[in-house]
Write a protein that binds this DNA or RNA. Sequence first.
DNA 1: GTAGGCTTCCAACAAATGATGGATTCTCGT
DNA 2: ACGAGAATCCATCATTTGTTGGAAGCCTAC
Lengths: 196, 196
Amino acid sequence: MKGRILEAARHLFAEYGFSGVTTRMLAREVGIDISTLYYHWGEKQDLYDAVMADLSCEIRAKLREIERMVHGGSLAHRLEVAIDVMCDWLFAHPEAAKLMLSSYMGKSRSAPDAHVPIKEHIANIAVAMGLALDRTRVPARANARVLTVWNSAINFTAGEDFFLPMLGVDRDEYRSVVKDTLKFILIPAFAQSSAA
Amino acid sequence: MKGRILEAARHLFAEYGFSGVTTRMLAREVGIDISTLYYHWGEKQDLYDAVMADLSCEIRAKLREIERMVHGGSLAHRLEVAIDVMCDWLFAHPEAAKLMLSSYMGKSRSAPDAHVPIKEHIANIAVAMGLALDRTRVPARANARVLTVWNSAINFTAGEDFFLPMLGVDRDEYRSVVKDTLKFILIPAFAQSSAA
DNA sequence: GTAGGCTTCCAACAAATGATGGATTCTCGT
DNA sequence: ACGAGAATCCATCATTTGTTGGAAGCCTAC
């Protein structure tokens, strides 16, 4: 039950934002009483924090998995696999992308260190991609390039319902176009960087 | 007064989202009574719609201005100027970026055609950049590439407060890094596209 | 079976919120 | 000066929302 509530909260918070979700909405979605919700997770803010903590954990695991997966290949191969795997996961979990986006923009939601793991992993990706040698001293420009890839993936997955009709393609083709676009645009830039 | 309310609403809605803003918040921000708010703009949803319509209009004008500005130059020059001017404007109006971002992701806020002008202008940019010949038949991949530029600019401006500490630079340097990154990553990709 | 703990529901409350009617003030043309 | 219309404020209402106390149900160890 605790899990079912968390999952429902995850989807609702992603869709409507923190203030856009009421405790009654949540209870109705799960099919339980409001009190049961409070019994398991405490107040609304605590539940939201739990959702974000859970998400943060998943992201960290996924990034570690990718890091292991691409270890040792060429730069182009690393980029291609990373983009493929990350996009697949994000397309399968668009709520994750939406939650991340709103946590980026919103005014100090939850703890200020909720984004720290992201920061660390962006730095790790920069090192893994050969843009920096030491993960404690990643140049701002290298971080910015990794962030551009990351944000683009988040955007296209979180905003699929919005962007899909703009491109005039069907669902499968959209996902293919997004991956190709990320690779097409980003791989040459990074390759150029590593050559310089 | 109508204008002052609209501007306050613009900033508050951008920061806290539609549900995160109360009519009392708005009234207090402007320093007026709640009723005055209703007198000028009707219900909260109407005010939100007005904010979005106003924003849509501004974006359209800005894009037209850029289109005129870069008319006739080389592809690289067009891209560079477009990125410079658009980033300058977005950095000066981060609420605009935040509003756009939330309108992309939110579940059917306001009228469904609120995004149509964006769609048209993305297509226009694609044509202006030489990625398509006819603005009614822009290939999905060309649109996707333009969208990537667009979204990246929106992200870095809307999330400045979040990304700035991640890059460990000051405000001015951040804006410079963002512009450089967008140009560095995107110009080669588009140039490669036009060569193919 | 039954005592005790874990889970769920019912009912309710205080505060916040969207919205409105009517009184009051302000503006300005005559 | 004054009167009409626009603009603003005060007081208030009905709902919604977050949250809680306590009763009822369910499960399990003895």
